[in-house]
Amino acid sequence: MELQAVHQNPSEKTENPYLPHMARIVRIHRMVPDNYLFQLRFVDDNVLQNWEHRPGQFVELSVIGTGEAPISISSAPTRKGILELCIRRAGRVTSALYKLPTNAMVGIRGPYGNGFPVEEMEGNDLLIIAGGLGMAPLRSLLWYALDNREKFGTVTLMYGARNPADMLFREELLSLADVEDFNCLLTVDRDPTGTWKQHVGLLPTLFKKATFDPSRTYAAVVGPPIVYKFVLAELLKLNFRKDRILMSLERRMKCGVGKCGHCSVGYKYTCIHGPVFTYWDAINLPEIV
């Protein structure tokens, strides 16, 4: 009785999922060339108070008069009030965003996507593995875990960048390097500055610096294809179960709400079924990696 379902409650006003909320850019932190952190605050107090998201979710950001683009959320749900988006200048919308000054308005709708299954991950050890720009969505998960430290066993971050200047959230992560109860492993492929005090070497070499109990660990991996290739091999070698390896995919999430079709991977929609998939999902879906 499909049509009836549509006909019911004609007076009930459905919220328009395509309608962005206005948000103000409160600060632009120029972390890395072409990779800035934008701190946003919703204008409408109602939206601000009711905003909730999960680590690993994304929003659709509108530069008014240019267009919309999907952006993963870098701030943790535990830090309310300010939404942080780490945005690479890559296309039309992000190029226009980079021209906006502090205090300019943008549109935000969301949050979208499944995000990381944090409830399921809690009670386990957590291994966060980021390659390059993959740190952007994983930072939300990292702070979620650090802010809920008692809910997790050991927490390990392994983050590899090409060189220190390319490392996202570098100062913040360096300040966490000596935190007790958190194993923060940072590496760079090379160090032209000669001042880098952390590890030098490709990301998979960090596996030698820590030990894991795969039976009680969830691994969250985000990075370029090359990172997946080598990191997944390491994790499988350590006998990680395929459904305990989580990865986040980048696709063209144009509508964010499972309609427009652009983010389809195999026959799933990244915006609804993802962007976080287990490695088991991945190998069972055509064209996922």
């Binding site: 499909e2 549509v6 004609p10 459905t14 395509y18």
Partner: peptide
């Protein structure tokens, strides 16, 4: 149309434009 309903009307994010037209159309 019943199949489109599943994607545009009976899904997690109902599409208000589609629903308005569907609701206002006698078939």
């Amino acid at each position: 149309l019943n199949i489109l309903d599943r994607v545009f009307a009976q899904s997690k994010y109902p599409d208000p434009y589609y629903i308005a037209r569907r609701k206002n159309t006698a078939i």
